[in-house]
Amino acid sequence: MWRNSLNVLSKATFQQFLLKSVCQKEQIRTTFILKRKYAPLLSKKGSPPKKLKARQHIYELVKDTKLEKRPNIDVILTSFVDGLGNIGEKVSVKPQYGYNHLILPGLAVYATSENEEKYKKYALRDDQVKYSSPNALLMIHALQRMCLSVIMNREHVWTLKPWHIKVSFRKCGYVVPEDAITLPEKHIKGPDMNLENKEFYVTVTINKSEKVNVRCILHHWSTDLVNRIPHIDKFWELPLEPMYAEFKDVLSEIPKKSNNVNNNTI
């Protein structure tokens, strides 16, 4: 009996200092929850509980919470996270991902009312790097990595236009609207076999805010089998010359895919 009374006492004292205002949520069970198959015998008022019999140790599984889906947790980002959001944004993520990849590395904090107020200021500030969408940085990296093959006609006269680039992007699986594509100031005209297999660049604007330079290579194509130039395998890995000397500076800034590949293999 004294043990029970102690239980009640100490729990009461603890409740005094457990402030309910901060994060008192419902208890979470992520474990085996069992039930007795045979109920234990009732004890008399004031006397200690009766000794359990062997059959009262037979348990039935009520629930194994490990198999259940756990609710998402809310976090506030403390920096831009790829595919999630900007600084100061409140996002709901899966608990394991949130804990391991956001909270522990310090990319996010728990969404308490204090933290919400604290990071509200950050969200309003302009000096932080911000992106137009959570996936903007991913998109920038993807475009920088690619080497776009622009295939033009060998027989008819042409001047390179944004829609040519749009078609080339579409062949690679990228849907790029025409107005997002900006060509370099110097016009590229053809057919010109001097330009064959030479590098140039186009600028893609993502969400009308982020600008990315994309490395392109010009190839000529003929409907006549005799004039057709044989395909070069893995042209993106070869060291190529820029089409004009003006392009050299911009092209050298774009990280080249071939270098990475070589580094990895070595």
């Binding site: 901060v22 474990t31 804990y99």
Partner: peptide
């Protein structure tokens, strides 16, 4: 730890 510990840490905000 157990999964319960992590979820308790999450629900207690740290």
């Amino acid at each position: 730890v157990t999964d319960r510990t992590i979820s308790l840490i999450n629900s207690n905000y740290g």
